[in-house]
Design a binder for these strands. Structure first.
Length: 424
RNA sequence: AGGAGCGUAGCUCAAAGGCAGAGCACCGCGCUGUGGACGCGGUGGUUGCGGGUUCGAGUCCCGUCGCUCCUCCCA
């Protein structure tokens, strides 16, 4: 039986990794412009972190998290998202003691046990930013601006994107909203799925993003969080809208947007592509003012977003080749062609010298014919072919063929490095 | 989670119960030491896997695994 990659976990092959590297580099540069510095947290955390941070009743933790005991029986989890980890690290290392706003970004694999489909894998990759330590709605606006900037920088048209925006209030007005939802759903209790009947008691907010059809139907006319905001949350939201207007960033208020994670407070948003199908969200995020405290740290407000690399790659990959602004990795500069076995040792020495001089160089190890090897050199995009045969090596020379012009020149072996360096 | 479709060579796909094929790719030769063309030849498959029906299954049936799409949720 052939061993294959496990379901929903895919290999990213060299043809694709150049695009990945390009996107990653753009992300790093873009977020650096906004003052974010990278943080790398472990892929494995205690399962408890996500239960407390993301929320026990969320689908992500409840149904989709990879959980397993380690050899001591400690319950561990593959991270389903990174915000909880970042905040955990922020608390653990006392980053709050440095004052001001901590701006952190990350990039890496996440894991969710879901049914895989286009743009949704079980191991997928997210990039994200977290700004910790400020309640200022201007920071929400800046984070959203960064999201837009990143998409623009990657060459996505603004018209092809749209921002869904909502406020789900704070812990102070959450009970009122929860009560309103419960009151609304109670008469429909029998129509709800068993999951939602449980959610009705535990966390009625989650009914709003249940995937059952009838639950969707029932939820359509449910009370809206925007109508249950306290004065502070109302003001925060209005201020944010003002800043977005000032920045010229379009948004669509979406009262159904609650996001699948419990830690969100106030601002929630998603930036989606009109060019994608069912999985259209390119990135999503919001404010999480209670998360740090819930994880045992000092009360620290935060706001951020996370985006999916696979989605981004999909959208970028579907564009016309001419629109693509990433470069493919170039081939070796020099390709060595030892004519017979006897010249291989010399070829290896020259290869080593060229590479140490910063000149990319390669040769064939597959035992192919000389003609074939020259073809491969051209295919690989080499600029020079270097023939090493008895004839020229006996004179201490190699024959350099310029593969663009076809011009050949004999060059002493000791001068190959300056010779190749001196040409553009 | 629900619905639909598809799994045949490395890739794209044929074979409508009767000899598993083509194109591309790969390798060699023509060209004993020199280019993407051309010509000739060659390697490559337990038809995803497991059962069943049949004289006979890539084809029909059941199961299973995987992928794709839709609904939904989300990254």
């Amino acid at each position: 039986m052939k061993v294959e990659a496990v379901r929903g976990m895919t290999d990213i092959l060299p043809e694709e990794t150049s695009l990945w590297q390009y996107v990653e580099a753009e992300i790093r540069e873009a977020v650096a412009l906004y003052g974010y510095r990278e943080i790398r947290t472990p892929i494995v955390e205690r399962a408890e972190l996500f239960a407390r941070g993301v929320g026990e009743t969320t689908d992500i933790v409840h149904k989709e998290m990879y959980v397993f005991p380690d050899k001591k029986g400690q319950l561990l989890a593959l991270r389903p998202e990174a915000t909880a980890s970042v905040v955990r690290a922020y608390i653990e290392h006392g980053l709050y003691a440095r004052g001001g706003v901590a701006k952190l970004y990350y990039l890496g694999p996440m894991f969710r046990y879901e049914k895989p489909q286009k743009g949704r894998k079980r191991q997928f990759h997210q990039y994200g930013v977290e700004a910790l330590g400020s309640l200022d709605p201007a920071l929400d606006a800046e984070v959203i601006d960064l999201a837009w900037y990143l998409m623009e920088r990657l060459g996505l048209r603004r018209e092809g994107l749209f921002l869904r925006l909502n406020s789900i209030g704070c812990p102070r007005d959450r009970p009122r909203y929860r009560e309103a939802l419960r009151e609304y759903f109670l008469p429909h209790r029998e129509g709800l799925c068993t999951d939602c009947q449980r959610r009705l008691d535990e966390n009625p907010l989650r009914i709003l993003d249940c995937n059952g059809h009838t639950c969707q139907e029932i939820a359509r006319d449910a009370p809206r969080s925007l109508d249950y905001l306290c004065e502070g949350c109302r003001a925060h939201f209005d201020e944010l809208l003002g800043y977005l207007d000032a920045l010229g960033l379009a948004y669509e208020k979406d009262p159904k947007l609650v996001r699948g994670l419990d830690y969100y407070t106030r601002t929630v948003f998603e930036l989606a592509s009109r060019d994608l199908g069912a999985q259209d969200a390119l990135l999503g995020g919001g404010r999480y003012d209670g998360l740090a405290e819930a994880l045992g740290g000092p009360p620290t407000p935060g706001v951020g977003f996370a985006g999916g690399m696979e989605r981004l790659i999909l959208v970028l990959g579907e564009r016309e080749p001419g629109e693509r602004c990433y470069r493919l990795i170039s081939g070796p500069r020099a390709y060595l062609l030892p004519v017979a076995e006897e010249e291989k040792a010399e070829a290896l020495k020259i290869l080593a010298a060229l590479r140490r001089a910063g000149i990319s160089a390669d040769m064939d190890y597959a035992g192919r014919s000389l003609r074939k090897r020259l073809q491969v050199a051209v295919q690989r995009g080499a600029r020079y072919a270097l023939f090493l045969g008895e004839e020229e090596l006996s004179r201490g020379e190699g024959k350099v063929r310029d593969l663009e012009t076809g011009v050949e020149e004999y060059v002493p072996v000791g001068e190959l490095v300056p010779y190749l360096q001196g040409r553009s």
